[in-house]
Protein backbone atom coordinates (compact mmCIF):
# COMPACT_ATOMS: atom_id res chain seq x y z
CA UNK A 1 0.00 0.00 0.00
CA UNK A 2 1.27 3.51 -0.66
CA UNK A 3 1.88 5.30 2.59
CA UNK A 4 0.08 8.44 1.58
CA UNK A 5 -2.48 8.15 4.37
CA UNK A 6 -0.69 9.29 7.47
CA UNK A 7 -2.20 9.34 10.91
CA UNK A 8 -2.18 12.59 12.92
CA UNK A 9 1.07 11.39 14.50
CA UNK A 10 2.63 11.31 11.06
CA UNK A 11 2.93 7.53 10.96
CA UNK A 12 1.23 5.38 8.34
CA UNK A 13 -1.73 3.34 9.48
CA UNK A 14 -1.28 -0.40 9.90
CA UNK A 15 -1.78 -2.13 6.58
CA UNK A 16 -4.86 -3.78 8.11
CA UNK A 17 -6.53 -0.44 8.56
CA UNK A 18 -5.52 1.04 5.24
CA UNK A 19 -8.21 -0.60 3.14
CA UNK A 20 -11.51 1.08 2.27
CA UNK A 21 -13.92 0.97 5.19
CA UNK A 22 -16.47 -1.82 4.83
CA UNK A 23 -20.06 -1.67 6.04
CA UNK A 24 -19.35 -4.25 8.75
CA UNK A 25 -16.19 -2.49 9.95
CA UNK A 26 -18.24 0.70 10.16
CA UNK A 27 -20.77 -1.19 12.30
CA UNK A 28 -18.01 -2.45 14.61
CA UNK A 29 -16.70 1.09 15.21
CA UNK A 30 -20.20 2.46 15.81
CA UNK A 31 -21.16 -0.40 18.14
CA UNK A 32 -17.94 -0.12 20.15
CA UNK A 33 -18.40 3.64 20.61
CA UNK A 34 -22.03 3.23 21.71
CA UNK A 35 -21.13 0.49 24.20
CA UNK A 36 -18.37 2.64 25.70
CA UNK A 37 -20.56 5.76 25.87
CA UNK A 38 -23.32 3.82 27.58
CA UNK A 39 -20.89 2.44 30.13
CA UNK A 40 -21.45 -1.17 29.04
CA UNK A 41 -17.70 -1.64 28.50
CA UNK A 42 -14.55 0.48 28.37
CA UNK A 43 -11.69 0.99 25.95
CA UNK A 44 -9.36 -0.56 28.51
CA UNK A 45 -11.58 -3.62 28.94
CA UNK A 46 -11.66 -4.23 25.17
CA UNK A 47 -7.88 -3.81 24.93
CA UNK A 48 -7.35 -6.22 27.83
CA UNK A 49 -9.61 -8.78 26.17
CA UNK A 50 -7.64 -8.52 22.92
CA UNK A 51 -4.36 -8.83 24.83
CA UNK A 52 -5.62 -11.94 26.59
CA UNK A 53 -6.64 -13.44 23.27
CA UNK A 54 -3.31 -12.56 21.63
CA UNK A 55 -1.50 -14.17 24.55
CA UNK A 56 -3.17 -17.53 23.88
CA UNK A 57 -1.42 -19.75 21.37
CA UNK A 58 -0.87 -23.40 20.55
CA UNK A 59 2.12 -23.23 22.93
CA UNK A 60 -0.46 -23.40 25.75
CA UNK A 61 -1.95 -26.64 24.47
CA UNK A 62 1.57 -27.94 23.83
CA UNK A 63 2.42 -27.49 27.51
CA UNK A 64 -0.60 -29.56 28.47
CA UNK A 65 0.34 -32.31 26.01
CA UNK A 66 3.98 -32.39 27.10
CA UNK A 67 2.93 -32.66 30.74
CA UNK A 68 0.66 -35.58 29.85
CA UNK A 69 3.54 -37.32 28.06
CA UNK A 70 5.80 -36.92 31.09
CA UNK A 71 3.44 -37.39 34.02
CA UNK A 72 1.18 -40.49 33.96
CA UNK A 73 -0.97 -39.21 36.84
CA UNK A 74 -1.56 -35.91 35.02
CA UNK A 75 -2.39 -37.84 31.85
CA UNK A 76 -5.07 -39.76 33.77
CA UNK A 77 -6.53 -36.55 35.15
CA UNK A 78 -6.45 -34.94 31.68
CA UNK A 79 -8.32 -37.85 30.13
CA UNK A 80 -10.83 -37.81 32.99
CA UNK A 81 -11.48 -34.04 32.96
CA UNK A 82 -9.45 -31.92 30.57
CA UNK A 83 -10.91 -28.64 31.86
CA UNK A 84 -9.78 -29.33 35.43
CA UNK A 85 -6.39 -30.71 34.40
CA UNK A 86 -5.69 -27.67 32.17
CA UNK A 87 -6.59 -25.36 35.03
CA UNK A 88 -3.90 -27.07 37.11
CA UNK A 89 -1.37 -25.56 34.68
CA UNK A 90 -2.95 -22.13 35.09
CA UNK A 91 -5.04 -22.01 31.91
CA UNK A 92 -8.43 -20.31 31.93
CA UNK A 93 -10.86 -22.75 30.34
CA UNK A 94 -14.03 -20.86 31.26
CA UNK A 95 -17.27 -22.77 31.61
CA UNK A 96 -16.47 -25.09 28.70
CA UNK A 97 -16.37 -28.81 29.01
CA UNK A 98 -13.04 -29.75 27.43
CA UNK A 99 -12.42 -33.36 26.43
CA UNK A 100 -8.94 -34.68 25.60
CA UNK A 101 -8.77 -37.54 23.12
CA UNK A 102 -5.53 -39.48 22.94
CA UNK A 103 -3.86 -40.82 19.84
CA UNK A 104 -2.35 -44.28 20.14
CA UNK A 105 -0.55 -46.65 17.82
CA UNK A 106 -3.91 -47.78 16.42
CA UNK A 107 -6.19 -44.77 16.81
CA UNK A 108 -5.91 -41.26 15.38
CA UNK A 109 -8.33 -38.56 16.50
CA UNK A 110 -9.45 -35.47 14.58
CA UNK A 111 -11.68 -32.61 15.75
CA UNK A 112 -14.21 -30.52 13.84
CA UNK A 113 -17.29 -28.42 14.44
CA UNK A 114 -19.76 -29.31 11.67
CA UNK A 115 -22.40 -26.88 12.97
CA UNK A 116 -20.31 -23.75 13.37
CA UNK A 117 -16.72 -23.13 14.44
CA UNK A 118 -16.29 -24.40 18.03
CA UNK A 119 -12.60 -24.84 18.78
CA UNK A 120 -10.49 -25.23 21.95
CA UNK A 121 -9.53 -21.54 21.69
CA UNK A 122 -8.60 -21.30 25.36
CA UNK A 123 -5.68 -23.67 24.74
CA UNK A 124 -4.90 -23.04 21.06
CA UNK A 125 -5.87 -19.41 20.39
CA UNK A 126 -8.10 -18.38 17.48
CA UNK A 127 -8.87 -21.06 14.91
CA UNK A 128 -7.37 -21.12 11.41
CA UNK A 129 -9.59 -20.17 8.47
CA UNK A 130 -9.73 -23.67 7.07
CA UNK A 131 -11.18 -25.04 10.33
CA UNK A 132 -14.20 -22.77 9.75
CA UNK A 133 -14.51 -23.56 6.04
CA UNK A 134 -17.39 -25.39 4.43
CA UNK A 135 -14.88 -27.77 2.88
CA UNK A 136 -13.37 -28.95 6.19
CA UNK A 137 -16.65 -29.04 8.12
CA UNK A 138 -18.52 -30.95 5.43
CA UNK A 139 -15.92 -33.48 4.44
CA UNK A 140 -13.81 -34.44 7.42
CA UNK A 141 -16.68 -36.44 8.93
CA UNK A 142 -17.23 -38.57 5.81
CA UNK A 143 -13.81 -38.78 4.15
CA UNK A 144 -11.26 -37.97 6.84
CA UNK A 145 -8.42 -39.79 5.09
CA UNK A 146 -8.77 -37.66 1.98
CA UNK A 147 -8.98 -34.49 4.03
CA UNK A 148 -5.91 -35.42 6.10
CA UNK A 149 -4.05 -36.13 2.86
CA UNK A 150 -4.70 -32.51 1.86
CA UNK A 151 -2.71 -31.58 4.96
CA UNK A 152 0.05 -33.93 3.84
CA UNK A 153 -0.87 -36.54 6.44
CA UNK A 154 -1.33 -40.08 5.17
CA UNK A 155 -2.10 -42.68 7.82
CA UNK A 156 -1.87 -46.45 7.44
CA UNK A 157 -5.12 -48.18 6.44
CA UNK A 158 -4.89 -50.10 9.70
CA UNK A 159 -5.18 -46.92 11.77
CA UNK A 160 -8.68 -46.22 13.06
CA UNK A 161 -9.63 -42.57 12.54
CA UNK A 162 -12.12 -41.08 14.99
CA UNK A 163 -13.64 -37.69 14.16
CA UNK A 164 -15.07 -35.75 17.09
CA UNK A 165 -17.76 -33.13 16.44
CA UNK A 166 -17.60 -30.23 18.90
CA UNK A 167 -20.43 -28.11 20.26
CA UNK A 168 -20.55 -24.65 21.79
CA UNK A 169 -20.36 -26.13 25.28
CA UNK A 170 -18.17 -29.17 24.66
CA UNK A 171 -14.85 -28.99 22.86
CA UNK A 172 -12.14 -31.48 22.11
CA UNK A 173 -8.37 -31.36 22.00
CA UNK A 174 -6.21 -34.14 20.58
CA UNK A 175 -3.27 -35.48 22.56
CA UNK A 176 -0.92 -36.52 19.76
CA UNK A 177 1.19 -39.64 20.11
CA UNK A 178 4.63 -38.99 21.59
CA UNK A 179 7.19 -39.27 18.79
CA UNK A 180 9.80 -42.01 18.88
CA UNK A 181 13.29 -41.04 19.99
CA UNK A 182 12.15 -38.51 22.58
CA UNK A 183 12.89 -40.55 25.71
CA UNK A 184 15.67 -38.24 26.88
CA UNK A 185 13.84 -34.94 26.29
CA UNK A 186 12.51 -32.77 29.10
CA UNK A 187 9.02 -31.29 29.14
CA UNK A 188 10.02 -27.99 27.54
CA UNK A 189 11.81 -29.71 24.67
CA UNK A 190 8.84 -32.02 24.20
CA UNK A 191 6.38 -29.12 24.11
CA UNK A 192 8.34 -27.63 21.21
CA UNK A 193 7.44 -30.72 19.16
CA UNK A 194 3.70 -30.30 19.66
CA UNK A 195 2.18 -28.39 16.75
CA UNK A 196 -1.23 -26.79 16.58
CA UNK A 197 -2.32 -29.17 13.83
CA UNK A 198 -1.22 -32.16 15.92
CA UNK A 199 -3.72 -31.03 18.58
CA UNK A 200 -6.49 -30.69 15.97
CA UNK A 201 -5.56 -34.04 14.47
CA UNK A 202 -4.64 -32.76 11.01
CA UNK A 203 -0.97 -33.33 11.78
CA UNK A 204 1.39 -35.32 13.98
CA UNK A 205 3.82 -34.12 16.61
CA UNK A 206 7.22 -33.31 15.10
CA UNK A 207 10.10 -35.72 15.41
CA UNK A 208 13.14 -34.37 17.25
CA UNK A 209 15.72 -32.85 14.93
Amino acid sequence: MPHDHLSPSGHPYRADNDMPLTYWQCMEIAMRELLIEKGVTTTAEIAAQIDAMDARSPADGARVVARAWCDPAFRQRLLADASAASRELGFDIGALRLIAVENTQDVHNVIVCTLCSCYPRNLLGLSPDWYKSREYRSRVVVEPRRVLAEFGLTLPDTTTIRVHDSTADMRYIVIPARPAGTEGLDETALAALVTRDSMIGTGLARSPA
Binding site: R14, D16, N17, Q25, E28, I29, V112, T114, L115, L126, P128, D129, W130, S133, R134, E135, Y136, R137, S138, R139, V141, V142, V147, E150, F151, D165, T202
Partner: peptide, 24 residues
Amino acid sequence: MGGDPADALPLRDGRPAEHDFALW
Protein backbone atom coordinates in the same frame (compact mmCIF):
# COMPACT_ATOMS: atom_id res chain seq x y z
CA MET B 1 -22.74 -29.12 7.04
CA GLY B 2 -21.39 -32.49 8.13
CA GLY B 3 -21.47 -34.88 5.18
CA ASP B 4 -22.47 -32.31 2.56
CA PRO B 5 -20.59 -32.51 -0.72
CA ALA B 6 -17.80 -29.94 -0.84
CA ASP B 7 -14.59 -29.13 -2.65
CA ALA B 8 -10.97 -29.62 -1.62
CA LEU B 9 -9.76 -27.40 1.20
CA PRO B 10 -9.01 -23.82 0.16
CA LEU B 11 -5.26 -23.34 -0.08
CA ARG B 12 -3.06 -20.32 0.47
CA ASP B 13 0.60 -20.64 -0.47
CA GLY B 14 0.06 -24.36 -0.96
CA ARG B 15 -1.26 -24.93 2.57
CA PRO B 16 -4.81 -24.95 3.95
CA ALA B 17 -5.71 -21.28 4.25
CA GLU B 18 -5.13 -19.14 7.33
CA HIS B 19 -4.72 -15.42 7.90
CA ASP B 20 -3.52 -13.01 10.54
CA PHE B 21 -6.50 -11.43 12.20
CA ALA B 22 -7.00 -7.73 11.52
CA LEU B 23 -7.52 -5.38 14.44
CA TRP B 24 -11.20 -4.92 13.63
